[in-house]
Protein backbone atom coordinates (compact mmCIF):
# COMPACT_ATOMS: atom_id res chain seq x y z
CA UNK A 1 0.00 0.00 0.00
CA UNK A 2 1.46 3.35 -0.99
CA UNK A 3 1.37 6.24 1.41
CA UNK A 4 2.85 9.70 1.72
CA UNK A 5 6.52 9.84 2.72
CA UNK A 6 6.66 10.32 6.49
CA UNK A 7 9.75 12.52 6.60
CA UNK A 8 12.55 13.74 4.34
CA UNK A 9 14.99 14.54 7.13
CA UNK A 10 18.04 12.34 6.38
CA UNK A 11 19.04 12.04 10.04
CA UNK A 12 15.58 10.89 11.14
CA UNK A 13 15.38 8.42 8.22
CA UNK A 14 18.82 7.05 9.18
CA UNK A 15 17.91 6.64 12.84
CA UNK A 16 14.49 5.06 12.19
CA UNK A 17 15.89 2.63 9.64
CA UNK A 18 18.90 1.57 11.71
CA UNK A 19 16.61 1.03 14.71
CA UNK A 20 14.24 -1.14 12.65
CA UNK A 21 17.14 -3.15 11.17
CA UNK A 22 18.55 -3.80 14.65
CA UNK A 23 15.13 -4.71 16.09
CA UNK A 24 14.42 -7.18 13.28
CA UNK A 25 17.83 -8.84 13.46
CA UNK A 26 17.83 -8.96 17.28
CA UNK A 27 14.37 -10.59 17.06
CA UNK A 28 15.89 -13.08 14.64
CA UNK A 29 18.51 -13.92 17.28
CA UNK A 30 15.66 -14.90 19.61
CA UNK A 31 14.02 -16.92 16.80
CA UNK A 32 17.30 -18.84 16.33
CA UNK A 33 17.67 -19.37 20.09
CA UNK A 34 14.06 -20.58 20.26
CA UNK A 35 14.67 -23.05 17.41
CA UNK A 36 17.72 -24.35 19.28
CA UNK A 37 15.67 -24.54 22.51
CA UNK A 38 12.88 -26.66 20.97
CA UNK A 39 15.26 -28.80 18.88
CA UNK A 40 14.37 -32.41 19.78
CA UNK A 41 17.54 -33.75 18.11
CA UNK A 42 20.13 -31.69 19.96
CA UNK A 43 22.73 -33.45 22.09
CA UNK A 44 22.35 -32.85 25.84
CA UNK A 45 24.90 -30.36 27.09
CA UNK A 46 27.93 -32.00 28.64
CA UNK A 47 28.36 -31.25 32.36
CA UNK A 48 31.09 -28.72 32.83
CA UNK A 49 34.21 -30.20 34.32
CA UNK A 50 35.88 -28.09 36.95
CA UNK A 51 39.11 -26.75 35.62
CA UNK A 52 42.26 -28.02 37.22
CA UNK A 53 44.39 -25.38 38.94
CA UNK A 54 46.90 -23.88 36.56
CA UNK A 55 50.19 -25.71 36.50
CA UNK A 56 53.36 -23.72 36.78
CA UNK A 57 54.73 -25.41 33.68
CA UNK A 58 54.81 -23.03 30.73
CA UNK A 59 52.94 -24.44 27.70
CA UNK A 60 55.09 -25.08 24.68
CA UNK A 61 54.74 -22.31 22.11
CA UNK A 62 52.62 -23.30 19.09
CA UNK A 63 54.95 -23.83 16.16
CA UNK A 64 54.11 -21.92 12.98
CA UNK A 65 52.62 -24.23 10.34
CA UNK A 66 55.05 -25.51 7.74
CA UNK A 67 53.61 -24.41 4.40
CA UNK A 68 55.21 -25.71 1.25
CA UNK A 69 56.03 -23.18 -1.44
CA UNK A 70 53.27 -22.76 -4.03
CA UNK A 71 50.39 -23.24 -1.56
CA UNK A 72 48.37 -20.00 -1.47
CA UNK A 73 46.64 -18.59 1.68
CA UNK A 74 43.27 -19.28 -0.04
CA UNK A 75 44.07 -23.01 -0.21
CA UNK A 76 45.09 -22.98 3.48
CA UNK A 77 41.79 -21.24 4.30
CA UNK A 78 39.80 -23.82 2.34
CA UNK A 79 41.62 -26.74 4.02
CA UNK A 80 41.06 -25.14 7.44
CA UNK A 81 37.35 -24.57 6.74
CA UNK A 82 36.93 -28.18 5.57
CA UNK A 83 38.64 -29.53 8.70
CA UNK A 84 36.46 -27.32 10.94
CA UNK A 85 33.33 -28.39 9.03
CA UNK A 86 34.15 -32.03 9.86
CA UNK A 87 34.22 -31.11 13.55
CA UNK A 88 37.97 -31.28 14.19
CA UNK A 89 39.77 -28.62 16.16
CA UNK A 90 43.41 -27.70 16.56
CA UNK A 91 46.06 -26.09 14.47
CA UNK A 92 47.40 -27.10 11.07
CA UNK A 93 50.99 -28.24 11.48
CA UNK A 94 52.05 -28.58 7.88
CA UNK A 95 50.73 -28.46 4.33
CA UNK A 96 52.65 -30.38 1.68
CA UNK A 97 51.91 -30.94 -1.98
CA UNK A 98 51.52 -34.69 -2.64
CA UNK A 99 53.16 -36.05 -5.75
CA UNK A 100 50.30 -36.92 -8.10
CA UNK A 101 52.52 -39.32 -10.01
CA UNK A 102 52.59 -41.57 -6.96
CA UNK A 103 51.47 -45.19 -7.46
CA UNK A 104 47.98 -46.25 -6.31
CA UNK A 105 49.59 -48.57 -3.74
CA UNK A 106 51.53 -45.70 -2.23
CA UNK A 107 48.37 -43.52 -2.17
CA UNK A 108 46.47 -46.35 -0.50
CA UNK A 109 49.17 -46.71 2.15
CA UNK A 110 49.08 -42.95 2.78
CA UNK A 111 45.28 -43.05 3.09
CA UNK A 112 45.44 -45.95 5.58
CA UNK A 113 48.05 -44.09 7.57
CA UNK A 114 45.84 -41.00 7.74
CA UNK A 115 42.84 -43.13 8.78
CA UNK A 116 44.83 -44.55 11.70
CA UNK A 117 45.71 -41.04 12.89
Amino acid sequence: MEHATVTTNPLIIMMINMTVVFIVLVSLIFVIKFIHFIDPTKQPAEPEVEEAPPTPVQPAPQPAPVIEEGVSPEIIAAISAAITAYGFSGQIKAVRIINHESTPWRASARFNNLQRK
Partner: peptide, 12 residues
Protein backbone atom coordinates in the same frame (compact mmCIF):
# COMPACT_ATOMS: atom_id res chain seq x y z
CA UNK B 1 25.05 -17.94 11.86
CA UNK B 2 22.91 -20.52 13.69
CA UNK B 3 25.88 -21.60 15.79
CA UNK B 4 26.61 -18.03 16.87
CA UNK B 5 23.42 -15.94 16.37
CA UNK B 6 24.96 -12.86 18.01
CA UNK B 7 26.81 -12.27 14.72
CA UNK B 8 23.48 -11.03 13.33
CA UNK B 9 24.32 -7.82 15.21
CA UNK B 10 27.40 -7.40 13.01
CA UNK B 11 25.21 -7.83 9.92
CA UNK B 12 22.94 -5.09 11.28
Amino acid sequence: LLARPSTLLLGA
